[in-house]
Design a protein around this nucleic acid. Structure first.
Length: 596
DNA sequence: GCCGTTTTCGGCCCGACTGTTTTCAGTCG
C-alpha cells in the first residue's frame, strides 16, 4: 500500500461518514473532490509528503486535507477518521451502497430504527417497521428489496470492450425506428473510460412516446427501473457471449435513455457526456459570463423563476457542442479530456491521436507461440488495416504457458519471415521481433546477441506481478535502459477488475524512457489498457514516446485499437508522440537507431 | 473544506423521475 492509495481510502471513508452524520455537504464534497484528484494524480505522494506546499499544489487539496495526508504519513492514521469511525457503525456504510438509498434515508433508518447493517435493513423490511419511516411506502420498500437481490448477484463495472459493443448494438436496434432522428451513446463510454457503471444513450426525436415504447421492447431488457417523458432507465442482461468468452462477472448493466429535441442536440450531448466535474466547471464559467447552461441550451441570464427554456427564452447556442464551447470562449474539448483535470487552462483544443493515425502494429503473436493466426493470416489482416509495418513478436522461452520460443525455434521462424517478405513484397514491411519476458530480477529472457539480431524487441513483465513498487521500478528500468529494447510492453501487467499489477514509480520510468528513446506501450486490449490513462497523461507530459499496440492473438484483437487510442486520448496523447503513427521512414529510423 | 481576472469571505450547477405527498424531499447523474 502506498501513501496515495491509503489517502484515497481514508479521505473517501471520511467523506462517507460525514455524509451519514449529516455534516455540511460542501465539506463532504471537498473530501470527495480531493479523492478524485488524488486518483488522477500520476505520481506517488511519499516524495512530497513532508511538503505542505507541494501537496496543496494538487487541485482540490487545501491546507486541511494536506495536513491529513501528512498526519497519515507520519503516524499511519488520521485522527479525524478514527473519531468519525467511533460515531458511525462501519457496517452502516454497506447500507449506503444499496442503489436508491442515500445518506438522508440511511441516517433516518439508523436514528429511528437502529439500522446499523444490511441485516438490520432486512429485519425492518421483514417486520414491516420500515413503513413507519417518513416518506416510506410499499413501493419504496419493493425497490429496496429488488436492489438487495440485485446486489447479491454482484455487479462490477463493465469493461469498455464489453460495454461499447453492447451500446452499439442497442443503437443499431433503436435506429430501426423511423421516429429516431439521431442516436448516440454519451457518458463515460463516450469519454473512453476503461470501465463504465452504466450506459447513456441519447436520442433525438419528435415522438418521444414511440421511441420510449421501442426502447422498452429492446432485446435483453430485463427490468424497467424508471420511465418518463424524456428519460427511461432499464436493466439489460449482459449476453454470455459478450467479449468473446465471458470475461466479466457482471450479469446486467443499467442503460439510461435520454430523449431530446433535435434542435437541442448539442446541449444535451454536452450535458450527458459529462464528466460531472467538467459540466460543473463549465456551468460555473457560463454563470461568470452572465449565462445559464443546462441540457436545453446556453441562455442569457434573465431575472425570473424557473428554468429559462420554460420561460420562452431563446437559447444563444444549443445545436452543437462546438457552438456552445465557442460561445463561452472555450476550445471544443474532445470528450476524452472532459474531466476537469486541467483542460480549462487550454487556449485551444489539442489534436489528439486518432485510430486513423495508426499505421503500424508492433506487438503481434502467431501460432508459433499462443496466437491463433498463422503468419500469413496475421500479415493479411495487417495489410487489410492499411498498415505499412507489422512486427511479429511471439513470446520468449520463459513463457512456457504461452509456448514461448526457444532460440532455435526463433531462428527457424526467421526463415518463414523471410519467405513471407518475398511473398508480400511491396505491400507491407514485416519485422521479426519478439515479446521478451522481463524476468523477476529485471534481466531479459534472451541473451543480448539474440536480442540484437532481432529487428524489434518488446520487453514485458509476465510473472511476479505483486512485487513491491521499488523492486518493480528497478526491474522495469532495467528493460527500458537495455540498448536492444524498443518498447516496454504492458508495463504494469494489470488486468482490469482482476489483477492490480505492478505499481512502479512512473516518473522514473518516464525519465529513463525519454533518455533511452524507449517507447512505453499502451496495450489496447480492453482487459489491459496498460499503461492506463493517468499514466499516459504523466508520461506524455514528461515527453515520452508511446506504442499503441493490439497485442494481437486473434483476428478480432485488431478491433481493440480504438480502446487503446481512447486511452491515449484520455492521456492527452498527440500523434507525434506515438511511434505507430510515424511514417515508414521515421518509424524505421527509430527502430534501426537501436541496432547500431 | 476549497477557492479567487468580480471575492481572502461567501460562494459552491441543474434538472428528471419517483413516491409520497396535496407541494416536495430524496436520489441520481
Amino acid at each position: 500500500m502506498t501513501l496515495k492509495s491509503d489517502s484515497i481510502r481514508s479521505l473517501s471513508h471520511i467523506a462517507t461518514m460525514l455524509e451519514l452524520l449529516g455534516e455540511d455537504a460542501f465539506r463532504v464534497n471537498a473530501n470527495a473532490r480531493a479523492v478524485r484528484s488524488l486518483e488522477a494524480f500520476p505520481d506517488e505522494l511519499e516524495p512530497i509528503a513532508d511538503d505542505q506546499k507541494q501537496l496543496t499544489a494538487i487541485p482540490g487539496i487545501g491546507a486541511k486535507i494536506a495536513q491529513k495526508i501528512i498526519e497519515l504519513h507520519t503516524s499511519g492514521r488520521i485522527s479525524e477518521e478514527d473519531e468519525l469511525a467511533r460515531k458511525v457503525p462501519q457496517t452502516l456504510l454497506e447500507v449506503l451502497e444499496v442503489p436508491g438509498l442515500g445518506p438522508k434515508t440511511v441516517r433516518l433508518m439508523w436514528e429511528q430504527q437502529q439500522v446499523e447493517s444490511i441485516d438490520d435493513l432486512r429485519r425492518i423490511i421483514a417486520d414491516g417497521s420500515i413503513l413507519t419511516l417518513p416518506r416510506m411506502g410499499q413501493k419504496s420498500v419493493d425497490k429496496i428489496t429488488a436492489a438487495l437481490a440485485f446486489m447479491e448477484t454482484s455487479s462490477e463495472r463493465l469493461p469498455i470492450g464489453i460495454a461499447q459493443p453492447l451500446a452499439e448494438l442497442l443503437i443499431e436496434y433503436l435506429r430501426q425506428s423511423p421516429e429516431i432522428i439521431k442516436a448516440e451513446f454519451a457518458g463515460s463510454l463516450r469519454r473512453g473510460q476503461e470501465t463504465v457503471g452504466d450506459i447513456d444513450i441519447l436520442v433525438a426525436t419528435s415522438n418521444p412516446a414511440a421511441v420510449t415504447k421501442h426502447f422498452l421492447a429492446a432485446p435483453n431488457l430485463e427490468e424497467v427501473l424508471a420511465s418518463g417523458d424524456t428519460k427511461s432507465s432499464a436493466r439489460f442482461a449482459v449476453p454470455e457471449s459478450a467479449g468473446g468468452k465471458r470475461k466479466t462477472t457482471a450479469r446486467a448493466i443499467q442503460i439510461d435513455l435520454r430523449i431530446v429535441e433535435q434542435d437541442a442536440w448539442g446541449a444535451a450531448l454536452l450535458y450527458f457526456t459529462g464528466s460531472k466535474e467538467h459540466g460543473v466547471h463549465l456551468r460555473t464559467v457560463a454563470r461568470k459570463q452572465g449565462f445559464t447552461l443546462n441540457e436545453y441550451g446556453l441562455f442569457k441570464d434573465e431575472p425570473g423563476e424557473g428554468p429559462p427554456q420554460s420561460r420562452g427564452i431563446a437559447p444563444i447556442a444549443h445545436a452543437t457542442e462546438a457552438e456552445i464551447y465557442a460561445q463561452l470562449d472555450q476550445p471544443a474539448f474532445p470528450p476524452e479530456i472532459r474531466e476537469d483535470m486541467g483542460e480549462f487552462d487550454l487556449t485551444e483544443a489539442p489534436r489528439l491521436i486518432e485510430v486513423a493515425d495508426i499505421k503500424a502494429e508492433l506487438h503481434a503473436h502467431t501460432r508459433a507461440s499462443d496466437g491463433r493466426l498463422s503468419l500469413h493470416q496475421l500479415i493479411e489482416h495487417a495489410i487489410s488495416r492499411g498498415f505499412h509495418t507489422l512486427a511479429v513478436t511471439d513470446h520468449s522461452r520463459s513463457s512456457v504457458q504461452a509456448n514461448g520460443l526457444s532460440i532455435e525455434r526463433l531462428q527457424e521462424q526467421r526463415q518463414h519471415i523471410e519467405d513471407a517478405r518475398e511473398q508480400f513484397e511491396g505491400q507491407i514491411t514485416i519485422l521479426h521481433g519478439c515479446e521478451v519476458d522481463i524476468l523477476t530480477d529485471g534481466s531479459l529472457d534472451y541473451d543480448d546477441e539474440t536480442l540484437h539480431w532481432l529487428d524489434l524487441v518488446v520487453a514485458s513483465p509476465h510473472v511476479a506481478l505483486t512485487q513491491d513498487p521499488k523492486t518493480a521500478t528497478k526491474r522495469l528500468l532495467n528493460a527500458i535502459e537495455h540498448p536492444c529494447v524498443h518498447i516496454l510492453g504492458h508495463p504494469t501487467g494489470r488486468l482490469i477488475n482482476r489483477r492490480e499489477g505492478l505499481s512502479p514509480a512512473i516518473n522514473e520510468l518516464v525519465a529513463a524512457a525519454v533518455e533511452h528513446e524507449t517507447a512505453l506501450e499502451i496495450n489496447a486490449h480492453w482487459q489491459r489498457l496498460d499503461l492506463r490513462d493517468t499514466h499516459v497523461r504523466a508520461a506524455a507530459t514528461g515527453g515520452a514516446r508511446f506504442a499503441i499496440d493490439c497485442d494481437v492473438h486473434h483476428a478480432a484483437d485488431f478491433d481493440n485499437l480504438r480502446y487503446g487510442v481512447a486511452t491515449g486520448r484520455r492521456g492527452w496523447l498527440e500523434p507525434a508522440q506515438c511511434v505507430n503513427a510515424l511514417g515508414h521512414k521515421d518509424l524505421h529510423g527509430w527502430i534501426k537507431s537501436k541496432r547500431v
